[in-house]
């Protein structure tokens, strides 16, 4: 997703309603981000898949090395994979 505005809403709606589980992952603040956009589009139609949003939580990040900060925010590969696997069950 290069941008969340402008965005092809029809394409997202088609994709979302073809699945019953959607996971959005973004390296941005989760509030009003990609996941929020998908949730808005889906709610405008009504019904639809369960949406799980992953991204920067709504709090300050600590200082440190990039791998450390990613792990603290749950954005390291291991945590992402674990959460997606949980959702997929």
């Amino acid at each position: 997703m290069p941008t969340i505005k402008p965005v092809n809403e029809a394409e997202i709606a088609d994709f979302a309603f073809a699945h019953n589980q959607i996971v959005t992952v973004e390296n941005h603040q989760i509030v009003t981000g990609l996941g929020s956009l998908v949730a808005e589009i889906v709610s405008d139609v009504g019904g639809g898949p369960r949406i799980t949003r992953m991204g920067l939580p709504n709090r300050w990040a600590p200082g440190g090395t990039l791998p450390y900060i990613r792990a603290q925010l749950g954005l390291d590969a291991e945590t992402l994979a674990k959460r997606i696997a949980e959702v997929a069950q």
């Binding site: 300050w60 600590p62 200082g63 440190g64 090395t65 450390y68």
Partner: peptide, 14 residues
């Protein structure tokens, strides 16, 4: 300062 796990950040937050 700014080491992983340190409570002292180089650019502090409130």
């Amino acid at each position: 300062i700014n080491a992983d796990g340190s409570w002292v950040d180089q650019s502090p937050i409130e």
